[in-house]
Design a binder for these strands. Structure first.
Ligand SMILES: [Mn+2]
Ligand SMILES: [Mn+2]
Ligand SMILES: [Zn+2]
Ligand SMILES: [Zn+2]
Lengths: 137, 137
DNA sequence: GCAAAAATTGCGACTAATTTGCAAAAATTG
DNA sequence: CAATTTTTGCAAATTAGTCGCAATTTTTGC
């Protein structure tokens, strides 16, 4: 079983990219948080230049390592389903909490079916449910 | 049956806001497109100042007239479910097309149920399915 | 309609977010 | 380890978004 670390390194090498200190740093930080803004990422990686962070995120996106989430005003970043188990997000509109929602086979199946009826070949998807968490209602 | 235009005007008046030329213009432009970035909105409303567009979108959000979608890097704007029928989006990763996916009762029901099992009271949600459209695969 | 009052707009300046060119530094090659 | 290739940091340049305020538009109450 390849660790997600090895998986990330393979994704880089196999596409002709180098394994560098900033890239390892960024990956590590992404593993440590459920979802985070670019600004948080910049703050959490003080030794890495802002421009490098933008460039690395772009590369990680191309390699399918990271994805953007549609949460609130600013987009958030998190590892893709290849690196963490597929899930969706419950976002509390009162306290701002972001709660991971475990994968549901029935829901997933319905999504694929629906896309197919529109002659669309789905590769991945994102779902955000807004409302009130247990603490806030 | 109130037209969505009347509905928008009522939303403004009933909260003590004026009906102005820029506001009518923005609303009309929002009705004309499935989803659009702020930049597109600015380009499509040349007579309205950038600052006014930002302020109007903020107001329209507060009044539940418009919502943001996070598709790709920049967020996109579109009318809420109170103004256009509830739907989700298929986003083609090759040509960038954004296709509306008609509402599906089974899917919607499953969403609510899932959120509830996490003791979460869902108010609304957003779903984006990425993949290849019929022209691109 | 009309004048006064209230709300909104456009403009310009300003701050934050993102992108880009390029020389220096780091990683890979053999 | 030296040569080659890739990446990084830094600074400058764009682009996106915000704010104060005087001028203009809308609303209100005759
Ligand atoms: Mn997550
Ligand atoms: Mn839409
Ligand atoms: Zn909450
Ligand atoms: Zn397409």
């Amino acid at each position: 079983m390849p660790s997600s670390n090895q998986q990330m390194k393979f994704a880089l090498k196999s596409t002709g990219h180098s394994i560098t200190v900033p890239r390892k740093q960024l990956f590590k930080t992404l593993q440590a948080h459920e979802a985070q803004t670019i600004h948080e990422l910049v703050a959490r990686c003080p030794t890495v230049d802002r421009a490098t962070i933008y460039r690395t995120i772009e590369l990680f996106e191309e390699l399918g390592i990271v994805q953007r989430l549609q949460i609130g005003w600013k987009y958030q970043l998190e590892l893709t389903d290849s690196y963490v188990h597929h899930h969706h997000h419950l976002v509390c509109t009162r306290c701002g909490a972001i709660i991971a929602l475990a994968e549901d086979a029935e829901l997933e199946a319905r999504l694929i079916t629906l896309a197919a009826t529109a002659d669309f070949t789905a590769s991945d998807h994102q779902l955000e449910i807004r409302g009130l968490c247990s603490n806030c209602h």
